[in-house]
C-alpha cells in the first residue's frame, strides 16, 4: 500500500504510529491467549486518519467468532493509551498461517500447540487429501497421527504423538 507508506513518511520523526502499532499488536487472541495479534500477523497496516488512527486487521477464518472480539480489544487497548483507533477489516490478500511470526510459532509450541506447517503450494496443487507432516510440540517426533480434523477453534485440529503418546492441538496450515 503505497499510500499508507507515504502518510507514514509525512509524520517523519513522530513515532506515535509505531507506539500504537505496538499497543495493538500486544492484544492477546481471546481464544488462544498464549499469542497476541502481532504474533499472528493479522495487523496489516495502520495510518493516521484525522485525529484517529485507522488500523487494518485481517480475520483468520471468514467466520472466526474471535474476529469481532479482537477488533474491539484493539480499539479499547489503543483508546486506553489516549488514542482514538478505528479498525478496518481487510480480507485481501487472505491471511495465511505463513504470516505467524517466529516468536508466535515458538509461543504456540511452548503452549503445547504444534505450529502450522509451511503452506507450500497451498491450493495450487489441488491435492486435497495431502497431509502435512506435523511434529509433536513436546518431543519433536514426526511420528504423529491426526485424531480430529477439526478442534476447539476454527484454526486447530487434534493430533496425537505416537512416540510420547501425548495428544496435542495442531494449528492448521491455511
Amino acid at each position: 500500500m503505497v499510500a499508507a507508506r507515504d502518510i507514514d513518511r509525512d509524520i517523519g520523526g513522530d513515532d506515535m504510529l509505531a507506539d500504537i502499532r505496538r499497543i495493538a499488536e500486544s492484544v492477546p487472541d481471546p481464544e488462544l491467549v498464549v499469542v497476541n495479534v502481532g504474533d499472528l500477523g493479522i495487523i496489516r497496516d495502520l495510518r493516521r486518519d484525522g485525529h484517529a488512527v485507522e488500523i487494518d486487521v485481517t480475520p483468520t477464518y471468514s467466520a472466526c467468532p474471535a474476529t469481532l472480539a479482537i477488533e474491539l480489544a484493539i480499539e479499547t487497548a489503543v483508546a486506553a493509551q489516549g488514542h482514538e483507533a478505528r479498525v478496518r477489516r481487510v480480507l485481501a490478500p487472505a491471511w495465511t498461517t505463513d504470516w505467524i511470526t517466529p516468536a508466535g510459532r515458538a509461543k504456540l509450541k511452548q503452549a503445547g500447540i504444534a505450529p502450522p506447517s509451511p503452506r507450500g503450494d497451498g491450493n495450487g496443487g489441488h491435492d486435497y487429501f495431502a497431509r502435512p507432516q506435523v511434529a509433536c510440540p513436546r518431543c519433536d517426533s514426526l511420528d504423529t497421527t491426526e485424531l480430529s480434523a477439526f478442534g476447539a477453534t476454527a484454526c486447530k485440529a487434534q493430533y496425537r504423538c505416537l512416540s510420547c503418546h501425548e495428544p496435542f492441538d495442531y494449528f492448521k496450515c491455511l
Binding site: 477464518y61 471468514s62 481487510v90 480480507l91 485481501a92 491450493n123 491455511l174
Partner: peptide, 13 residues
C-alpha cells in the same frame, strides 16, 4: 474477489 481468496481455502479443507 477478496472473500473468494478466503473461501477457496476453507472449501479445500
Amino acid at each position: 474477489a477478496d472473500h473468494a481468496g478466503k473461501a477457496v481455502k476453507e472449501m479445500a479443507y
